[in-house]
Design a protein around this nucleic acid. Sequence first.
DNA 1: AATCTAGAGTTGACGTGACAACTCCCTCGG
DNA 2: CCGAGGGAGTTGTCACGTCAACTCTAGATT
Lengths: 162, 162
Amino acid sequence: MTETRSLEPEEWELWDTWMRAQRLLTRELERGLQHDCDISKAEFSVLVTLWQAAGREMRVGELSESLDWDKSRVSHQLTRMEKRGFVKRTQYGADGRRAGIGLTAEGRRAAQSAILVHGGNIRRHFLDSLTPEQASVIRAWSVQAVDRLEPRRSEAAGDGAS
Amino acid sequence: MTETRSLEPEEWELWDTWMRAQRLLTRELERGLQHDCDISKAEFSVLVTLWQAAGREMRVGELSESLDWDKSRVSHQLTRMEKRGFVKRTQYGADGRRAGIGLTAEGRRAAQSAILVHGGNIRRHFLDSLTPEQASVIRAWSVQAVDRLEPRRSEAAGDGAS
DNA sequence: AATCTAGAGTTGACGTGACAACTCCCTCGG
DNA sequence: CCGAGGGAGTTGTCACGTCAACTCTAGATT
């Protein structure tokens, strides 16, 4: 105990700088999203996921699984987005109350435009700042970290290429 | 504009995986902090910053600058932490109302223990997962990103070492 | 069939974070 | 002396995120 020493200054500095870089980058991107598309990062995530479902309605559980969000978080987010008119909850079965989630016309419009704009921002702020070597190291570390930290989804991660 | 093409699938996948890794890692660390030390990441940040001031009282503006947080965010956080008994606001001048911020005894205790425990968690979950090459690439990218995204603080980053 | 239970979804409470409006005091210019 | 302006902090509001408690339905048990 007395000499756990926690972290060496240089270790702490690596951690701190890395965290700071992430925070700055995500903040910048979120600001861009808000400014250019008037939607939040959370809204973007939901829009993209539903967009990728290509018109098919999703269930809350599917969204939750796919986004790796708590179900209640998804529910709260859907409530907010329903108020904004981006998504609608529909009845699933004939009698039951299970909700299917679909994009409204406005949701589709917002999703399409946001994907373009935000994609461009990601390229400008992140991808273009990486040397090929950095890209490959970061990719490798990320895959390894996700693998280690995310028990399920070990296979079928959906990464298709390479 | 018409053919921005947004992102290639492989670019998108790099971005997505990286974000996912970050999210998983920070979630894990935050859970550890909450579970082991019963404090949040935000509380930890404030405690550490005040701890590093070694007893000297700080001003809200200094905290805000040092954490790179909005001043109102600092103020809200201090209100909550004052309620929990971690910090206290003291009068600064003889007559004025400028507040100095200091740790309470309980705040000092919490800070000390959290720095140890959390440091260990950072090592286990992050530092130990890095090869030397990954560490150096990530360090380089982070420095470069912070430099690009954080106009002020170009020099005198305040972390002491190198 | 009556009930138990597991799963899906919702709700409420609360901490977190961003932004804008506000207060207070101090200083500067008339 | 008075009022304009500005810096430091605070407060309000709203969106986001987590946890625990709740509701409702359907399938399982008896």
